[in-house]
Design a binder for these strands. Sequence first.
DNA 1: TAAAAATACTCCATAGGTATTTTAT
DNA 2: ATAAAATACCTATGGAGTATTTTTA
Lengths: 301, 301
Amino acid sequence: MFKRLPYFLAVASEQHFGRAAQKLHMSQPPLSQQIRRFEEELGVTLFKRTTRNVELTEAGEFLLRRIEPILKEIDGIIDSTRAVHCGSLGELRFGVIATATYSIFPRLLALLRERLPQATFRLSQLSAAVLKQAVLANQIDLGIVRGAGDPSFRSKIVAYEPLFAGLPLGHVLASSQEVSMQDLKRERFVMWDNNGASAMAAQIHRLCVSHGFEPEVTHRSPQFLAMVSLVAQGCGIAIVPEAVARLGQPGVAFKRISNPDAYSEVSLIWHPQSASRLTQRFVEQVDEARRPTSPALGVLA
Amino acid sequence: MFKRLPYFLAVASEQHFGRAAQKLHMSQPPLSQQIRRFEEELGVTLFKRTTRNVELTEAGEFLLRRIEPILKEIDGIIDSTRAVHCGSLGELRFGVIATATYSIFPRLLALLRERLPQATFRLSQLSAAVLKQAVLANQIDLGIVRGAGDPSFRSKIVAYEPLFAGLPLGHVLASSQEVSMQDLKRERFVMWDNNGASAMAAQIHRLCVSHGFEPEVTHRSPQFLAMVSLVAQGCGIAIVPEAVARLGQPGVAFKRISNPDAYSEVSLIWHPQSASRLTQRFVEQVDEARRPTSPALGVLA
DNA sequence: TAAAAATACTCCATAGGTATTTTAT
DNA sequence: ATAAAATACCTATGGAGTATTTTTA
């Protein structure tokens, strides 16, 4: 039944049993038989044939017109199924923290479109905690968070992002080229927060301690825009990743912190069990891009 | 390949090889084999299976979502192909003369929609001569013309349409209930024309002669609206079929001609060779409707 | 008479059946 | 221990081949 449709199609398009049989890599008699059986099981005469001429009946014309595009479509679906299997077709669900949405994520997206052009994506901007839950619940495929890793996930660092000090415009350091951690010893800090679980806050705290001081924190916020406003109002200074510094803000000057350990790691995280083929393929492509031999390395270094 | 799609569908929807095999009226082992072969020839794992649990892989989900509606569609196409074969589905191309477009044709159309609801139609309004050529050239399936038949076609009378005299309002007969051919003896006539081949003109001429007079024709036109205007202007009287009388026209009174032979036959014509199944079915339905036992008779009597 | 479809027949691949084994819960 | 899928093996349908006949333009 289904298997006979391609036979019908070949005879219909060739209007000739012999040529159709050649095209199908078979001999003419079995093809004639298949068509006859097809007609019998349909109860429909599809061809008007003499030994000199083969043409479609009305019903045959109808069937040809309808079935031809469908068989092509099925071929396409089969190809696409193979593409899904090998992880080049599908949808990647990204969960991204606010400060990576406009810097790291676009770079990864460019990589996705270059290396896996058949893949589509869906983006959710989430707090780090919610994002990790979503990865575990297989609601998103890939998370972008700060920090080097987490034993619950598979992870990969995709960027070392330089840290900047955000200073009110009148501040004595606001006119210098760079600042060092030493310069910030006596400052009051507007600090990141995420119900006490902010990776940035922990990172900055470690940084201060390793440079010999305990930061004096006056305000805390989970929203970087709120932090930067507090800086503009003179409530203190803030340490932020480059992505936030780049956005700028009236009344605030951002100065790169010159110490080599003043950076924030950004990682891709994913679930080792539920990772789809596409997820795996994409992670491989990220690896590939970060190898020194690859020209795409720079964008993620 | 194609034949295995329904197997895949059954297993995918049941998530169970045994039940799927039952649904397919076969035993479980060959079904397992078919699925395995299908996976092999695709090069794609479609199911994750243990002895306790069967579920689709990503690629399997993808294939299921895409292929299920298509197989349903193919079933529908097969059914429709059968309908085309038996003449209940398709398009009827009607060619209709002007004076049948608003009277006889709508009745036939109602019959078509009642008896062959899957059929669609296409309507061309043509002169009788062009229409007959179009039937011979298989450009239209069914023509509606005046006259009882023609040896070049198969035909069937579908209406005997009473004739009316169209009279200017001031005319002495314009106040009577009916007129007879005798009353029209001395009148001047505005006559139908179609390059000398009008069936109506021939019919009316025969009618006059059989009632003992040769009509005095002052004007001729192929357009009934033109004829009726000439009547309104007092150029003469016109004999027209009921369909024209029903349309009415300011300044003209239409009176039924009481003689029993004062009618015009309207016929369906079609090509005996190239008639489609639907054409044949429709003609059968017209026969059916004209039988005295059928309640639908009246509309065409 | 020649080209092409249908028929007759033969053979083998493969679909499908039964019995059994393996595996995971 | 049990349900269910996989495996092994057998059978038979039917798909495909070759040789031949029929048909019609």
